[in-house]
Each structure stands twice: as C-alpha cells, then as structure tokens.
Computed example of a mutant assay.
Amino acid sequence: MKENLVLTISRQYGAGGRELAQILADKLGVKLYDRQIVHIAAAKLGINDLSEEELLQMENQVKPLSMSFIPFHSFGTHMGESSHGMFLSESSAIKKLAKDGSCVILGRCGDYVLRNDPNNFSIFVCADDEYREKRGQEVYEGKSLKELDKENEKRARYYDYYTGRTWGDGANYDLVVNTSREPLDKIADAILAYIERVKN
C-alpha cells in the first residue's frame, strides 16, 4: 500500500460509518479525525468560548435549498461569514492533516476537499432502511428511521451546498459500501484489500 494514504469517509446516519472508520484507522495504525477538525478550524478562527455542540451548530448552519439557490463554491459568502469561515478553515485543516501523513477523515466534505490529492481514497457508507432502523434503536438511543433520515437531509444540504455535488452520488467516490450485508470488521478487510489492489 502507498506510504501515504488518506481515507475520506462520508456516511448515511445509522449505517455504521463512524465505527467502520475507526476499524479502518485501527487496522492501518493511523489516526481518525472527525470532530477534532472542527476544533482545529475554530482555533484558527479564534473561537475558543463555544461548546462542541455550539461549534457543530455553527458549522451546520445550512438552510434548505431554495429555487434561487447558488452553490457556495461558485458564489462566495451567501451563507454568512461564520459558516463561510468555518468551512474554509476546516478545509485548510483537512489539507494539512492529509499532508502530514496517512489518516482517516470522517465527513467534513473531505472527499471533495482532497479530490485532487492522489493519496486520497474516498468511500461512501450506506445501508438499507431495515439495518439503519435497527441500529437507530440499539446504537443511537432509540432514534427512529425518520429521525435518522432528517440527519441525512442536513448532511446532504451541507455537502451539496459547499461542493456543488450530490451527497451520496456514487460517481463522487472511489468506493460505495453497503454495511447491511456483512460485519463491519469483514467489510473493513475487504475495503483495504480493494485499496491495496487499485492503489498499487
């Protein structure tokens, strides 16, 4: 496998993407970055007095798309300075982390930010509704499928807004995996075997 490998992972809520990302990081012996990126970005912006929940709320201030929607990536500060600055700062942090060495980056439009990085391998993690509904009850404190889907809508708006691309569209990723079929550990092994094959 390449000396420097950066896995960027996007995922449906309830599909087990976070657990899969951690398993992949453990198997590769590298760090997993997720919410740390938000804190790095906030520090760069000089925001030190907000809780993690408040930082995540600020990061996700994306309103539903209107008919007059103009993508951020082609227009600029349509969303306002706080969200604008947070996204740019997060993007800068992601690029720096990727340059520093192999790692796994969860969410944060990492696949888009590193789309021109030859060391990046992007993955989208999805699952069928039955699997996600079961995980919602067992892993996500009794969340319903409707609640999981609502979170997915927020993720899609955020991604679509900042990238001009469609969240979850297989054409935007190197690999799409469905976690409904096999245990996460087995899926992780299959992903790494596939990466080994295509990267070398």
Rank of each mutant, 00 (worst) to 15 (best):
H39N: 06
V139F: 12
D49G: 06
R18Y: 13
E182Q: 15
D117W: 03
V177G: 07
V198E: 11
L56Y: 09
L65V: 05
S74D: 08
S92V: 07
A43G: 08
R157W: 06
F72S: 01
K44Q: 15
C126H: 10
V6Y: 14
I47E: 05
A93T: 07
S10T: 11
G46I: 08
Y194D: 12
E53P: 00
D128Q: 10
L32N: 04
S68R: 15
E19L: 15
Y162H: 02
L55M: 10
A15R: 03
K154I: 12
L106T: 02
C103L: 08
F69K: 07
D160H: 04
E196Q: 11
L5H: 08
R155W: 06
C126Q: 12
S144I: 09
E90I: 04
D111I: 03
I23C: 07
G136L: 05
A42P: 01
D174A: 11
L55I: 11
N48L: 10
D26V: 05
G164C: 00
D117T: 03
A21G: 08
I105F: 01
E3C: 14
K95E: 11
E141T: 14
H78V: 10
C109H: 00
K31M: 09
E52I: 10
D169C: 15
I94G: 01
L24Q: 02
L145R: 07
K146I: 13
I23Q: 04
A193L: 10
Q12T: 10
R181I: 14
D49L: 09
L5I: 15
G76H: 00
D129W: 06
N178E: 14
N4P: 10
G16A: 12
N116W: 12
Q137P: 03
L145W: 08
I105C: 00
S83Y: 01
R108P: 02
K146N: 13
H84D: 03
Q12Y: 09
I47T: 02
G80M: 01
S122Y: 02
E19Q: 15
D100T: 07
S91W: 01
G142I: 09
R11S: 05
R165V: 00
T166Q: 15
L20R: 09
V104W: 02
M58S: 08
Q57R: 15
F124G: 05
P64W: 07
H73D: 09
V30L: 03
R35P: 03
R197A: 14
D26E: 11
A193C: 06
I70D: 06
L32I: 06
Y13M: 15
Q36A: 13
G142V: 06
H84R: 01
D117K: 03
D129A: 15
L114M: 03
Y131M: 12
A98Q: 03
N200C: 10
P71I: 02
L145N: 05
W167S: 02
K146L: 12
D111N: 09
I70L: 12
N116E: 13
A188L: 04
Q12M: 13
N152Q: 10
V113R: 00
A93H: 04
S89L: 05
